[in-house]
């Protein structure tokens, strides 16, 4: 079993290295790619005349290295090694041009806000959809089941950002119950005080509801699995043995119906994180997603590549968590692979 965990983690590390390599290739090898652009920008800032002395050229190259972690003078394998060392050993992602600060700490600061809205939205969305799914299965065929099935299908046809826009128009622009953007009211001093904290909640309410919609899913699949599971013999045996209904509902039906959709649910969370790019733009919520867009609009390549790696890392973590925890809910998973190959 320990072997299984080691394998999954090693796998995740290898995948992340491959993606980092892709990022490196995008920066270094693309003609007129990020590195060329940064170099041109730095060169423009430094000199008004077109030509450089050797000394100036060295300074330009050094600055480019500070920004992108890649020294244009070095050969590609050497630069690649340097880039990997910077990211994996020093967690140095370069320096943002637009925000003029190191990308790593900047992303960490922005990330907490992104996680704040996504995690609440997701946790609420996933929990309610699973609860609804189970309730629908128990009341199969009733009016409750039919109504909720209809709502779930509707939910799958309407993208979360449309719901977001509609809520924004109704509750922020027309009724003015909620603010239309920002993290918190600038009048209050950040800290542990009621005004500041309620202001955060007030500003996060609409984005959380939108990401709740984005995270709501899987109700129908869960309902189907529960119905299938409810018809099985061992549930009846459980009833006959006098096991309480709650225990059967949670430990028997709930757990076994979760298995087939579990991985999908956890990986789906990563999709919700990367959809924060659209979400935060709509709600003008200045966290990681909006920063990525600003990086795009200002051609801030170091930040852009950092954000790309960051979102990849989140997805990777999602998959890894799914893999590692799957062993807990389904003890049957085996690490080994004893199939015949043909």
């Amino acid at each position: 079993m320990a072997n299984y965990y080691v394998k999954r983690v090693a796998h995740a590390v290898i995948v992340f290295m491959i993606v980092t390599t892709i990022a490196f290739a995008l920066i270094r090898l693309m003609p007129f790619g990020p590195m060329e652009m940064v170099r041109m920008r730095v060169a423009q800032q430094m000199s008004t005349s077109g030509s450089f002395s050797a000394e100036e050229l060295e300074r330009v190259n050094n600055l480019v290295e500070v920004y992108t972690n890649i020294n244009p003078e070095k050969s590609i394998p050497e630069a690649y090694l340097d880039y990997m060392v910077q990211i994996f050993i020093y967690q140095d992602f370069g320096r943002s041009i637009y925000f003029s600060e190191p990308v790593g700490p900047f992303m960490l600061r922005r990330m907490q806000w992104s996680l704040f809205i996504s995690v609440y939205g997701l946790a609420l969305g996933r929990t309610t959809s699973l609860l609804f799914g189970a309730a629908m299965a128990y009341k199969e065929g009733s009016r409750f089941d039919q109504t909720l099935t209809g709502i779930s299908i509707l939910n799958r046809t309407v993208p979360f950002y449309i719901v977001g826009i509609i809520f924004l128009i109704i509750f922020a622009f027309n009724l003015e119950w909620f603010p239309s953007g920002g993290l918190y009211n600038r009048d209050y001093t950040p800290g542990v005080n009621l005004q500041y904290m309620s202001s955060i909640v007030h500003h996060a309410a609409l984005p959380v509801i939108a990401s709740f919609i984005a995270g709501f899913g899987g109700a129908l699949a869960y309902r189907g699995n529960c119905i299938r599971e409810l018809g099985k013999g061992y549930i009846r045996v459980g009833h006959l043995r006098g096991i309480s209904d709650t225990r059967i509902a949670i430990r028997y039906v709930g757990r076994n119906s979760l298995l087939p959709i579990y991985t999908g649910l956890v990986i789906g969370m990563a999709t919700v994180f990367s959809s924060s790019i659209i979400l935060e733009k709509i709600f003008s919520y200045p966290a990681m997603g909006l920063a990525t867009l600003q990086a795009l609009n200002n051609r801030d390549y170091p930040l852009l590549m950092g954000a790309f790696l960051f979102f990849t890392l989140l997805t990777l973590l999602g998959v890894l968590i799914a893999d590692l925890t799957y062993g807990i809910i389904d003890p049957r998973v085996k690490g080994g692979d004893e199939r015949e190959s043909f």
Binding site: M30, S275, T292, L296, T312
Partner: peptide, 15 residues
């Protein structure tokens, strides 16, 4: 699967 599509498009859109 781990390359997030939305950020990838944003990165590609940059150059």
């Amino acid at each position: 699967m781990t390359i997030p599509a939305l950020p990838l498009v944003v990165v590609l859109a940059a150059f």
